[in-house]
């Protein structure tokens, strides 16, 4: 092997490389695609988990949608309000004042709900709903507890609770929406992080039917509606729904609920206390009404 040979090989390959390099350099100029300089900046502000909760294919897709004005600056829930404000600044928009939202499961059934049969198939809720008309639970609306939402969550924020229904860890939840997508019964909703009173049922059957299938179902009796002093809870389609704009978090509805279907679930003592207070108030009211009637009667005389 001659030394010249090595130089020759190096030279030829070097020349080849230079040619390719030049072609690529020219191609880069010819085929240049202008990228908006805001795009990488926006992408930096996103969570970067590629969770897909925003509905776009990954964080890059979301950044593009925000840039194109197709998605709001708050599109990335996991990034939180600080980053939404940053994105708004990049986009030259006003920072939105949105409240932090978290996921909430509209069911606390689990072992409280009557089971029709023991399901031993693939541990996936959608699969379970395909078996025998989806009647694993007697309740057509309840949480099946096979953990499709748990598998979907990238933030370890939702788990199957001690009684077999899914429970959201409010602190870990970023409201990315993956669990909402995963739940075949559409039981998971957005609720404000700051609120603590939530309805734990979504059974839309009439009271008697709802009561039969689950021990903690909403029977649409309207006790909560009558108890609420702020007009914040209403029975709609046979199930109680909270209006979070009005709810002050007094938890009176939860204590009034005869089926314990509203969170925070009161202890028996609390319930007793509440009942006694209600009774006393009712007596006072009756007495006042009686007194008023008597006064009226004497006046008439």
């Amino acid at each position: 092997m001659d030394f010249i040979n090595i130089l020759y090989a190096v030279g030829i390959l070097g020349a080849l490389a230079v040619v390719f390099g030049l072609v690529l350099a020219i191609a880069a100029k010819v085929f240049e695609v202008k990228v908006d300089e805001r795009l990488p900046k926006i992408q930096e502000c996103l969570a970067g988990a590629n969770c897909g909760g925003c509905g776009y294919p990954g964080c890059a897709g979301c950044a593009e949608a925000i840039l194109a004005g197709k998605a709001p600056v708050t599109a990335c829930a996991p990034a939180g309000p600080e980053n939404a404000a940053k994105i708004a600044a990049i986009m030259g928009m006003e920072a939105p004042s949105g409240e932090k939202m978290v996921a909430h499961v509209l069911c606390n059934g689990g072992t409280n709900a009557k089971k029709n049969f023991e399901y031993r198939g693939v541990t996936d809720c959608l699969a379970a709903t395909k078996v025998c008309g989806g009647n694993v639970l007697d309740c057509k609306y309840g949480c099946l507890g096979f953990g499709s939402c748990v598998a979907a969550c990238q933030f370890d924020a939702i788990h199957i609770g001690p009684n077999g229904a899914a429970v959201v860890d409010k602190e870990a939840c970023t409201n990315c929406g993956a669990c909402r997508e995963a739940c075949p019964r559409h039981l998971i909703v957005e609720v404000p992080y700051s609120k603590k009173v939530h309805v734990n049922c979504s059974n839309k059957d009439k009271g008697a039917a709802a009561a039969k299938v689950c021990a903690v179902s909403c029977i649409g009796c309207g006790m909560c509606e009558r108890t609420c002093k702020f007009d914040a809870i209403h029975v709609i389609n046979n199930v109680a729904v909270i209006d979070y704009d009005k709810c002050k978090g007094c938890t009176m509805c939860a204590k009034a609920c005869p089926k314990n279907a509203i969170e925070p679930i009161p202890t028996p003592e609390e319930k007793e206390k509440f009942k006694a207070a209600q009774k006393a108030a009712a007596e006072r009211k009756a007495a006042a009404a009686k007194a008023a009637a008597e006064a009226e009667a004497t006046k008439a005389e």
Binding site: V23, F31, E32
Partner: peptide, 13 residues
Amino acid sequence: ALVQFVEMFLKKF
């Protein structure tokens, strides 16, 4: 080089 080139080409067209 080819892959790079194809990538640029596709990106543009």
